[in-house]
C-alpha cells in the first residue's frame, strides 16, 4: 500500500510502514514522523527515509516509548528504524 500526500510519502510493506521525508525543510520531517507515530497506525515498525541525521528526534522518540536505530543506506541517505519499546504497551 502506498499513500501519496502533498509532499510526504508513506507506504506499507508487509508489517512495516515507511515514510519518506526527504526534501522537506525542518521541522517538517520531525513533525511528520511524530504525527504518524501518534496517529496509532504504526503497530510494529516504521522506517524513515531522510537525508539528514534527525538528532532532535531521538529524545522525542524515547519520551514516546519508541526504540530506534539509525543507519546510512547510500551516499547521504539515512534509514531510521523505529519500533515500539519491548516494555511499552
Amino acid at each position: 500500500m502506498k499513500n501519496s500526500g502533498d509532499e510526504i510519502e508513506t507506504w506499507q510493506d508487509a508489517d512495516t510502514w515507511h515514510i519518506d521525508v526527504r526534501g522537506l525543510v525542518p521541522p517538517q520531517p520531525m513533525v511528520a514522523i511524530l504525527s504518524l507515530l501518534k496517529s496509532g497506525n504504526i503497530k510494529n515498525r516504521l522506517i524513515v527515509h531522510i537525508e539528514r541525521d534527525p538528532v532532535h528526534l531521538y529524545a522525542e522518540l524515547e519520551e514516546l516509548g519508541w526504540d530506534y536505530e539509525t543507519n546510512i543506506s547510500d551516499g547521504d541517505q539515512y534509514l531510521i528504524e523505529i519500533r515500539k519499546q519491548a516494555n511499552a504497551e
Partner: peptide
Amino acid sequence: MPNKPLNVMANARGRL
C-alpha cells in the same frame, strides 16, 4: 532493539 544513534560519521557533519 537498543537505541542507537548514527553509527557512521556522516556527510551531515559537513553541514555543521
